[in-house]
Simulated scan of single mutants.
Amino acid sequence: MEDILRSIYQERASHPNTIGVVAVEKRHKALAATDTFDVILLIIVKENMDPVFVKHYSYQDKKAAMHIVTEKQIHEWLLTGNNKKIFDWLYNGKIVFDRNEKIAELKHELKEFPFMGRKIKIGIEFAKLIRRYSDGKMLFDNLNYLDAYNYVVHSLHHLARLAVIENGFHPEVTVWHQVKQIEPEIYKLYEELICSEETIEKRLELLFLASEFLIHKRTKIGSQHLVEVMEGADYWAFSDLMSHPELLPYSVDLGILVEYLIEKKILEVVNVETKGQSIYHRYYKVAEKLS
């Protein structure tokens, strides 16, 4: 690491707000991991006005990027998978400053991938899968085949990520390479969708049938986290589910997941009378057979 960059991160490391600093150097076969920069300096802080602050530097004939990110934002990315590069940075980066070994603990947790973390990520990924599959099916039924194709590609991607997580691994940028080794059945579906010489209508028809079976097979594990949260009360208003801290990462996909699980008889609707005639508050609970 050049002395000029060392002076930048050492200044940050002296701040009591700084948890740790990770340096990620560009690797020839992984240019995308650093967005073509020669070095990424990931500085993790307790608090900041902005959850993410980025600054670029030039030195000699090279370029570097400093990313100052709050600890909360890092954990959110790791949970939702919305920033895949963060996994590469933490896996392959070099710890150059670590207050109270917080970064070392984070890297160890990433490699171990504890079961609770897996369960939440499976739930979030399953909700995204149901959203993409349902929207794609609706488009297909309305003869919007090209739009349906786009949704099916995304639903297969979520199915692939789900399979990787189930097997105890974090989905990487090269998720299809992982899936080819772990679940060749899903990989084959993806190949058939993009390589088949059948008409797009026929390809989609076959994919929806196959996907429905694979989704059904994963419904129990995909809903496990949500069901466990909901078992904490007799029944729930949807607004209470939306505001529950453990369910916040499900975001806009929570509603369609709840409706899907009602259809599959994993959840039930509870109607409670209102002051208005023939209108009820709609609440939700875990189905009796699961309680």
Rank of each mutant, 00 (worst) to 15 (best):
K285H: 10
M49W: 09
R6W: 06
T174G: 09
Y9R: 08
K289W: 15
V269E: 14
K62P: 02
L214F: 06
L139C: 03
H225F: 14
W176C: 02
A163C: 08
H28A: 15
M230V: 11
H75Q: 07
Y235V: 06
Y280G: 04
P245D: 11
H281M: 11
E109D: 09
L193M: 03
S239R: 10
A127T: 04
A287T: 13
Y280T: 06
F238C: 11
G136K: 00
F97D: 10
C195R: 05
P114V: 09
M242D: 11
E109S: 13
E268K: 09
V272D: 14
G255T: 04
L78D: 05
F140Q: 00
V272F: 08
A23M: 15
D3F: 08
E109F: 06
E76S: 08
F126Q: 02
K119C: 03
F126H: 04
H177I: 08
V164K: 00
I19W: 10
Y283K: 15
K220N: 12
K26V: 00
A210D: 05
F208A: 03
E259M: 11
R132V: 01
V173Y: 02
L290D: 11
M230D: 05
D135I: 06
E288Y: 12
R218Q: 05
K275F: 05
A237H: 12
F37V: 01
E192I: 03
L214I: 08
I4T: 10
L214T: 05
A65V: 09
N17F: 14
P249G: 04
K119T: 04
K137R: 15
N82L: 04
L41F: 09
G255L: 04
Y145S: 05
G20L: 09
R12T: 09
V45F: 12
E105I: 15
E205Y: 05
I165T: 03
P16W: 10
R161Q: 06
Y151I: 01
H28R: 12
Y283P: 03
P114M: 06
G222E: 02
I262S: 02
L204P: 01
V39H: 00
I43K: 02
L143R: 09
M116P: 03
L156Q: 00
I43G: 02
W176F: 06
R131L: 02
L226N: 04
A30C: 15
I186P: 00
G20A: 11
E101A: 15
E263F: 11
G117P: 03
V45A: 12
I44N: 01
E11Q: 13
M1E: 14
C195S: 09
K111W: 10
V153I: 11
M116I: 06
S239F: 13
V227R: 12
K265H: 15
E11V: 09
S211R: 00
